[in-house]
Structures are given as structure tokens and as C-alpha cells.
Amino acid sequence: MWYVLIAVGILVFAILAISAKRLLISAIWLAITSALTALMLFLLGAPQIAVIELSVGAGLVTVLFVFAINIAGEEVIGLRSALPLPLVWTSIVLACGLLIFFIFRSLGFVQFPDATNTIAASVLWQDRYLDFLLQTVLILAGVLGVIGLLAHSKDEHSAEEKA
């Protein structure tokens, strides 16, 4: 019963997020969608992922969105695609159809290996060490990217001061 309510909530808030005219409202609906996704992850027995999703997806990303929208400013651009409409609809139907096809095909082949008793933490630190290293590099890349992209160059500053 809870699953049905959360799934319906996810659908409704996702549609609200993409149809909101103002970007700030859109970011807030996205945060609520993220919180509901975290709740569903928790019910599926993945509390660590739920906490990370809640803190990163609903917290950090929302702050980033608000920050970016504050700098860039609100600009209402209607939902008019830059691509030809038949192409857009064919792509959407094809993508969703392929997704459903692959999901239901893979459900037939579900095997149940012996339940491993390892907890997520030990897998993260020992077996998936390479992934973890990759994440560290990714976070470093993100920090460097933000510093590089948001920083004003000195020339621009001096030009603004002269003007």
C-alpha cells in the first residue's frame, strides 16, 4: 500500500517538476521527488543509499539549483522543442519501450545466488576499491570545475571597475 502511494507521488511530483513555469518552483518539486525516491529506497532495504540520496539529491543539489537560478535569473521558456515533433515523440516512445522491454526480459532471468553475508561497507572499502577511487577523482573534478567555471577572471573585474 505504501509503495503504491509513494509511486503515485513520485509520478505526480515529477510531472509537476517538469511542468512548473518558474525554475525555482521546479527545483523544489524536484527535491520532493528526491525525498520520495529516498523513502522508497529505504523501504526496499537500502537505508544507506536512502540517506545519501536524501542528503545529496534533496539537499545539496537543491542548494546548487537555487544558487544557479539566483545567479542566472529566472527566464520563462515554454515547452517548445527545438527538434521536430515527430522525431521527439518517436524518441520518447522508443526509449520508454526499450526500457520496459529490457526490464521485463531481465525479470525472467533473475537468478538467486547464495546470499552473501558481507555488509555494504566492507564491499565498498575492499571489493569496490576502484569505484571508490573513481568517486574521489570525480568529486575532485567537480570541485575544480566549479572553481574554474564560476570564477571571474581578473580582466573582467578590472573592466567592470573601469566601467
Binding site: 517538476a17 517538469i18 522508497m40 539549483f65 515547452l79 522543442s81 526509449a95 526490464i103
Partner: peptide, 28 residues
Amino acid sequence: AVISLAGTGFYCLLFTRNLIKVVVALQL
């Protein structure tokens, strides 16, 4: 829920022309 999230994301990604909305669609 997975299909509805991915479907709304694809829809928004292909329809919107706002750069920030594109990031919203990727998040979904």
C-alpha cells in the same frame, strides 16, 4: 516508479529548451 521517473525525464529532456530544465530532466 522507475519507468515514470525515466519517462518524465526523457520527455522534459527532449521538449525543453531551458538549460536549467535540462539538468532537472537528467536528475529525474
